[in-house]
Amino acid sequence: MQELLAYLQDPELVARFQRRCGLYLAEGSTRDHDKTRPANGAPITGEKPLGHMDGSWDHQDRNSNCRHKQDSVPVEDCRKPRYEVRNWLLHYLFLLSAGLGHEVFYITCLPWIHWNLDPFLCRRLVNMWTVSFS
């Protein structure tokens, strides 16, 4: 059982599924620190490190995977990897299906169903969504 759980938690499963669906890691998006930062850790592009941003966002987000040292130099490169889409049909299908879980969809869909189709159907949908989301 422990082997099955370890297999299911393998990030390579997600990567293989993405490649089968036509999403590939773009060339040149590897996390090579020597090309993106000099030896002192300062960014080459002239941008400030994440720990020294102007405004109220001068702290690290708790949800971030990027960790900073004491001198605000990132331990790892915090840039998101870039992907190349080779199957646009599946890409837009997945974007559409992901959009069905957004609050904006519920805010627009439920009143439309209530006003244009059937209020009883809308109440049943709200009850089903409430049970399934809790």
Rank of each mutant, 00 (worst) to 15 (best):
L4Y: 08
L5E: 13
A6S: 08
Q9G: 14
D10R: 08
D10W: 01
D10L: 04
D10Q: 09
V14W: 05
A15F: 02
Q18M: 14
R19I: 04
R20T: 03
R20L: 14
R20Y: 07
C21T: 12
C21S: 13
L23R: 05
L23F: 15
L23S: 03
Y24C: 07
S29R: 02
T30V: 05
D34P: 02
D34A: 14
T36M: 11
R37E: 01
A39I: 08
A39N: 02
N40S: 06
N40H: 11
G41M: 02
I44A: 04
I44H: 02
T45D: 15
T45F: 00
G46D: 01
G46Q: 09
G46E: 02
E47W: 04
E47P: 00
E47V: 03
E47L: 09
K48Q: 12
P49Q: 05
P49T: 14
L50D: 08
H52M: 10
H52L: 14
G55Y: 09
G55K: 10
S56P: 07
W57V: 09
D58V: 00
H59M: 12
H59F: 13
Q60N: 08
N65F: 12
N65I: 04
N65V: 05
K69M: 13
D71Q: 10
S72R: 07
C78P: 15
R79C: 04
R79G: 06
R79I: 00
K80E: 07
P81T: 05
R82M: 07
E84P: 00
N87M: 00
L89F: 06
L89T: 14
H91T: 01
Y92M: 06
F94H: 05
F94Q: 05
A98G: 04
G99C: 04
E103Q: 14
E103S: 07
V104H: 05
F105E: 00
F105G: 00
F105L: 03
Y106Q: 04
I107R: 15
C109K: 11
L110S: 01
P111G: 08
I113C: 05
I113Q: 01
H114A: 10
C122W: 04
C122L: 00
R123D: 15
R123H: 10
L125H: 03
V126T: 09
N127A: 14
M128W: 13
W129R: 10
W129T: 07
T130E: 07
V131I: 12
S132M: 15
F133T: 14
S134N: 13
S134H: 13
